[in-house]
Design a protein around this nucleic acid. Structure first.
Length: 490
RNA sequence: GGCCCCUUCGUCUAGCGGUCAGGACGUCGCCCUCUCACGGCGAAAGCACGGGUUCGAUUCCCGUAGGGGUCACCA
């Protein structure tokens, strides 16, 4: 139990006495990016920690920018990360009638009013404010004006009649007490002239109707919270607990956005070869801490997660650390699962589908491969040599090891291995070590050319392990190929 | 520009008035060793600055600087 913000700002919000309900509410205008994924994670963890509900709402009220593929991408991303939500997905646009109903209710009880100002008129207003270096905000020109008959058939928007005096304080669970003067807020549009709700109206109504108790979202919504609160109060509804989480920045410190280095979670999976549990762990540690703990799995995270542990400062995204975390989870991952992940990548690289025997070979070799890779791409690359057909390609560095002298050594290796009764890691190692000893050479002098011959590269899992997995015939064949190659250099 | 938020090693963070300022990634060195990894050991590296408050500030308060967010009939 920590005794910080939570204790210093005693829970006095009635919403905290209700069972926890959180929600993730992405707008489907693009992929699920890393910041959204973290917001989803925090909401998910908070709900699960408290045994509450984690709801999902698609904010598709912007008909022009919302797309089906974006919705699919977001659901795909959430599914990959395994953030299972409770209840049905709420599509905000389908609730437009309910939103309009609330706007009319506000209008009826005098907490909202019709504004007939045209877009051009408002632009003029802002231009004048800019010229006067005054803050840009709606001046309330229709706040107390009664429309004459000449406006009977004119389009209008409904604006909230927000308080102009005093100030509002939000007891944010992450940012602490934040106060803004009402004079800083203008009368926001609730219902557009075409009768559709704005985001401000929709979120408030939906959060209320869905029973959301804790609004956990990006810091970029902190300012919105004050306007939303005015609306909530006008309706006489219970206020949710707010927690505004700092944004994630790129490695250069600038805001991570779609045009600035932000990738969809699908790219972390497909292009960077990350495991979902690694992305989750990394994201959890980005902006949240629990003492010195670094590797925290799902169950542990649910047990430990709290809002008090969320930091107040924006964090920079560090791919190097993500890769380190990923490497950790790859080492922990089930071998068969890794084979499945690596199979399509290898198939693409070698231009053919893998047989059951291929997959079995990969499975047997996986323990030696996975400790050497930081992501699935590297894992696939490092495994390809097992499945090459002779003569296998030899890379430049490996080729340079295959000198005529190395050819002689390999010839003896071939002679001594071909007569072996059993073909195991132990038997081949013993044979090669015997050669090294008789020639008074370090094992490396033999192992490296052997590695070049068998793997086509200068790095690989333990060479005797490789020999065993590859089998006697294939191994000896590759060695013979290399001897030919080395001789050809004379 | 107005308003709001933020500021501990390069990066992510621990720290809740008295600590040799801890851990992790990254970097460098050593060990292990058939290569590369893994693993182990070690090193360099930080409280943005200035004022207060206090016996004592990384920690509390106020400024300054820097960074970020937000100011639509987008979400």
């Amino acid at each position: 139990m920590s005794a910080t913000r939570e204790a210093s700002s005693p829970p006095k919000n009635p919403a905290e006495n209700r069972p926890v309900v959180t929600r993730f509410a992405p707008s489907p205008t693009g992929f699920l990016h890393i910041g959204g994924a973290r917001t989803a994670l925090f909401n998910y963890l908070f709900a699960r920690h408290h045994g509450g509900k984690f709801l999902l709402r698609i904010e598709d009220t912007d008909r022009a920018r919302s797309t089906e593929p974006a919705i699919a991408a977001i659901l795909d991303g959430l599914g990959w990360l395994d953030f299972d939500h409770d209840g049905e997905i709420v599509y905000q646009f389908e609730r437009a009638a309910r939103h309009a109903e609330v706007a009319r209710e506000l209008l009826a009880n005098g907490n909202a009013y019709k504004c007939y100002a045209t877009a051009e008129e408002l632009e003029e207003m802002r231009a004048a404010q800019r010229a006067a270096k005054a803050p840009l905000r709606y001046d309330g020109r229709w706040r107390d004006r009664v429309a004459g008959p000449e406006f009977d058939n004119q389009p209008y928007v409904i604006r909230l009649k927000a308080p102009r005096e005093g100030s509002v304080t939000i007891n944010d669970r992450v940012q602490g007490a934040v106060t803004v003067a009402n004079a800083e807020l203008d009368d926001m549009v609730l219902l557009r002239s075409d009768g559709t709700p704005t985001y401000m109206l929709a979120v408030v109504v939906d959060d209320h109707d869905m029973g959301v108790t804790h609004v956990i979202r990006g810091d970029d919504h902190l300012n919105n919270a004050f306007r939303q609160l005015a609306l909530i109060r006008a309706m006489g509804w219970e206020e949710p607990v707010y927690a505004h989480v700092p944004l994630i920045h790129g490695s250069d410190g600038a805001k991570l956005s779609k045009r600035h280095g932000a990738l969809g979670v699908d790219a972390y999976r497909d292009e960077l070869g990350m495991l979902p549990e690694a992305v989750e762990n990394y994201l959890l540690r980005l902006g949240w801490g629990h003492g010195d703990d670094e590797f925290i799995d799902r169950a542990q995270a649910i047990q430990w997660f709290d809002l008090a542990g969320v930091g107040r400062a924006p964090a920079r995204f560090d791919l190097k650390k993500l890769e380190n975390v990923n490497g950790h989870y790859m080492r922990l991952a089930d071998d068969a699962r890794l084979v499945a992940l690596v199979t399509p990548r290898i198939a693409a690289a070698i231009g053919r589908n893998l047989t059951a025997a291929d997959q079995d070979l990969l499975l047997r070799s996986m323990s030696g491969l996975k400790i050497r890779a930081k992501n699935i791409n590297e894992l696939a690359d490092s495994a390809i040599f097992y499945l090459r057909t002779r003569p296998i390609p030899i890379d430049e560095r490996a080729a340079s090891l295959l000198t005529p002298e190395a050819g002689d050594l390999l010839a003896q290796v071939h002679r001594d291995l071909v007569v072996l009764d059993s073909w195991t890691t132990q038997s081949t190692e013993a044979a090669v070590r015997a050669i090294a000893e008789s020639r008074e050479l370090g094992l490396g002098k033999l192992a490296q050319p052997l590695r070049a011959a068998v793997s086509g590269s200068t790095t690989s899992p333990g060479i005797f392990e490789v020999l065993e997995q590859l089998g006697r015939e294939e191994s000896l064949g590759r060695i013979a190929d290399a001897i030919q190659l080395a001789k050809g250099k004379q």
